[in-house]
Design a protein around this nucleic acid. Structure first.
Lengths: 181, 181
DNA sequence: GTCTATACCAGGATAGAC
DNA sequence: GTCTATCCTGGTATAGAC
């Protein structure tokens, strides 16, 4: 019982977009891996952008929910820690990290994509919720950086001895420390 | 006495590549702003990639020099602080920050570009110089993040009242704090 | 040395046949 | 649900005008 074509297109596209870049990946390439012509893809997705939209969907929901939750909470140290921890949890869910990586690596190419814009705006709002305007600048920057720190594993030299989960755990520790003065 | 065409191409390209993305910016667009045909660009630059190379040159030299210097120094807290401070200085030099932004936003598109690869590898080496392999993981991640923290201004909501220089100054403070346990 | 005209090929997109 | 044919745009290459 093999997956349906639509899902397979998403999987192949996500992998290729991340590895080679969004624009560098042609629909012909995706179609070839799938064993069809590129025109066939247009049956399943209206445009190349539409494939991106389907990939972004998961993260849109995740980030906007987190933002909505944060807005119902008081601006306290506990809330900030909770936001960072919830974001770290989200990153552990299947495919979330992959989608995040794909988006990070293709920022400009996806700049005007509606779904991507929503994610970016929600992330900025979230960062906004982490500080008061009259907090000292270094503290505000540290807090902005905290959410981002969870993606910092990338700049670590890859080592066999350290798992992705351990890196995320350690990144979370760094992120939490960035919240405090 | 206006600048020469080559320099104007670089300026227009850097701006458009950063604003719209590398692949999203066509040579025709650049040529039009300049008031020539796209073929004319090929007199000044062999390929589109070649424009990127000319933009990356400045940063290649800067980063590789910093790496070479770091390697002559002992792995001490002072060296680490000095590396971060020198990197922050580099970011203040004209056009360096712009080139850095352009590169960050077009990671995948420029993935295989030789000059960009050199910059990325030098940055990774530099991060490597900041820690010992047996330092605790969170410390290593914090130190990896420190150089990156200097670019963190981007995630700050833009405010009229805060200058780019103040943001960089505050980011430097955050970066230096990330160096210590 | 600086540029235009023109042509080529690859990639995204669409229409219509099966 | 998939294919063929076709169109448009973009990067590249070259010949030649000034």
């Amino acid at each position: 019982m093999r997956e349906d074509t639509r899902t397979r297109i998403q999987e192949i596209a996500l992998r290729l977009f991340t590895e080679q870049g969004y624009e560098a990946t042609s629909l012909r390439e995706i179609a070839e891996e799938l064993g069809v012509t590129k025109a066939a893809l247009y049956y399943h997705f209206k445009t190349k952008d539409d494939i991106v939209a389907s990939l972004a969907d998961l993260r849109v929901a995740e980030v906007e929910e987190l933002l909505e939750w944060a807005r119902t909470q008081p601006r306290s140290p506990e809330t900030r820690r909770e936001v960072v921890q919830r974001y770290a949890e989200a990153l552990r869910r299947p495919r979330y990290m992959e989608v995040a990586r794909f988006m990070e690596r293709n920022q400009t190419a996806l700049r005007d994509h509606p779904k991507i814009v929503r994610i970016r705006e929600a992330m900025l709002e979230l960062v906004n919720e982490m500080s008061d305007p009259d907090d000292p600048l270094p503290l505000r920057i540290g807090r902005s950086l905290s959410l981002f720190a969870l993606h910092a594993g990338k700049w670590m030299p890859h080592e066999e001895s350290v798992s992705e989960d351990e890196v995320l755990e350690a990144s979370l520790e760094v992120a939490l420390r960035l919240l405090e003065p």
